[in-house]
């Protein structure tokens, strides 16, 4: 343990209201602390710069998975284990379940949360690609009220996002419009379990009369944020998923992502594998 633990504070509010009041009263002083699977790693390494945290782990207001006719809504503290075991998610949002099952080992899945995965804002996170492909919306709450916004666009740069210091990510909402979609999720790491993604690819698509009616294509670990490839999607609309289309789509994809070399992989590899995954996804949509 490299951190000077006496300098850190993890305070436990009795309720969501109390947590929000604390966030509001001292803006920027407090940050939320959920399952700890990311923050504790930084702490151990002596690299956790922020000192004061609110322990939201016990806030039941932020738990639970609820379904209406139009949406499934997940509390921000929904763990990867809870995601995987939910029958509606398994049926309608299989990529999210797959992402959850491929994040860390079971002990991490029991503790890691969807909200934490979003707010930690790692471009290598496993669930955001699936959430973006499912057109997720997120709810930010504060003592000022609540606002829903599309998850797409929430992250603005590396570890940057549209959240005010007094706001807390409370819920994630998925529209139940996945009927008839083909789901394609692939996390590429060096090993099969407990890997950090070198490339993470999530996409859904639908064809009609041999043509691509709709695609949503998201790639992680290839840019400072997880990228929804909107231009590629636009270029694909109405096309047949043939070799020519695939080649054009890959060329478009290259323009939308900006992978780098780091200790886990190379830019060249990430780019090539992202193209391969896109090609493979589109090939699955061939009739």
């Amino acid at each position: 343990m490299r951190a000077f633990i006496p300098n850190y504070q993890l305070t436990t509010p009795a309720s969501l209201a109390e947590a929000l009041t604390l966030l509001e009263s001292e803006p920027g002083v407090w940050k939320p602390f959920a399952g700890g699977t990311d923050l504790m790693v930084l702490l151990e390494a002596g690299r956790l710069a922020h000192r004061n945290y609110i322990n939201i782990w016990g806030l039941n207001e932020l738990r639970g998975i609820e379904a209406t006719d139009t949406h499934v809504t997940l509390g921000a503290l929904t763990t990867y284990t809870e995601v995987q075991t939910n029958p509606i998610l398994r049926r309608e949002f299989p990529m999210l379940c797959q992402a959850a099952s491929e994040t860390g080992g079971l002990a991490i899945q029991n503790r890691g949360t969807l909200g934490g995965n979003i707010v930690n804002a790692s471009p290598a996170a496993d669930s955001p690609p699936a959430l973006l492909a499912y057109d997720a919306e997120i709810e930010l709450v504060s003592n000022r009220g609540s606002r829903w916004l599309p998850y797409q666009g929430f992250h603005t740069g590396y570890k940057q996002m549209h959240i005010d210091p007094d706001e807390l990510l409370a819920r994630i909402r998925l529209p139940r419009n996945t009927a008839g979609l083909t789901h394609y999720y692939r996390k590429v790491g060096t090993r099969k379990a407990q890997a950090i993604s070198k490339v993470c690819f999530a996409a859904v698509g639908k064809t009609g009369q041999g043509k691509l009616m709709e695609t949503r294509i998201v790639v992680g670990s290839v840019a400072p944020i997880v990228v929804r490839c909107v231009q590629t999607e636009a270029a694909l609309r109405g096309q047949r998923p043939d070799e020519e289309t695939i080649a054009a789509a890959c060329a478009s994809l290259v323009r939308e992502i900006s992978p780098i070399d780091d200790i886990r992989s190379t830019a060249k590899y990430r780019l090539q594998v992202a193209k391969n995954l896109l090609a493979d996804f589109l090939a699955t949509l061939r009739t």
Binding site: M1, L10, T11, G36, T37, V41, E44, T81, A107, N110
Partner: peptide, 26 residues
């Protein structure tokens, strides 16, 4: 010390966790 190896696994309320990643407040 980073939740990767599982040597510190304990069971909390019926679920396994990495005890190196659990702060005492929780």
């Amino acid at each position: 010390g980073e939740g990767e190896c599982g040597a510190c696994t304990v069971i909390i309320d019926g679920q396994i966790v990495n005890s190196c990643l659990v702060p005492m407040a929780q």
